[in-house]
């Protein structure tokens, strides 16, 4: 399996699971079960201009994705720190980018094995 290493950060994920196969699978399963709700909530908060909820969900996504992807976590951090008075359009654009990246990450994790991860971390 080859990685889009712009999305998945194999070294970070290996460190997070300690190279433990069972924990890796638990983390992947839990991530895949959790992220769709976060993404729906993020989009809803953006559409309703609910700044408090938007920041809170963006922060949750930052924490959630940081174990898997430095770049996706950075996107979430950028959303969390967007200026409150910024126009809604760029926020929605960035929000959609974040949603797509997180979905891509979820797809990638669905077929990931510890062996893939170890191999990729050696290549890095």
């Amino acid at each position: 399996m080859s990685f889009n290493q712009n999305i998945l950060d194999p070294t970070t994920l290996l460190a997070a699971c300690g190279g433990d196969r069972v924990l890796l699978q638990k983390m992947i399963d839990s991530f895949r079960a959790t992220f769709p709700n976060h993404l729906s909530a993020l989009r809803e908060a953006a559409q309703q201009k609910d700044e408090f909820s938007f920041r809170r969900i963006a922060h949750q996504l930052r924490g959630l994705t940081s174990n898997y992807s430095t770049s996706v976590a950075a996107q979430a951090a950028a959303l969390e720190e967007m200026e409150a008075d910024q126009h809604i359009d760029p926020i929605m654009d960035r929000c959609e980018t974040m949603i797509q990246l997180t979905r891509d990450l979820g797809d990638l994790l669905s077929v990931l094995t510890l062996e893939d991860l170890q191999r990729a971390s050696r290549i890095q």
């Binding site: 300690g18 959630l64 174990n67």
Partner: peptide, 16 residues
């Protein structure tokens, strides 16, 4: 920890 993924990971590691 309100994020179940992180909470379960912490729990797993400490219990191990």
């Amino acid at each position: 920890e309100d994020d179940p993924t992180t909470r379960e990971a912490i729990q797993y590691l400490l219990e191990k």
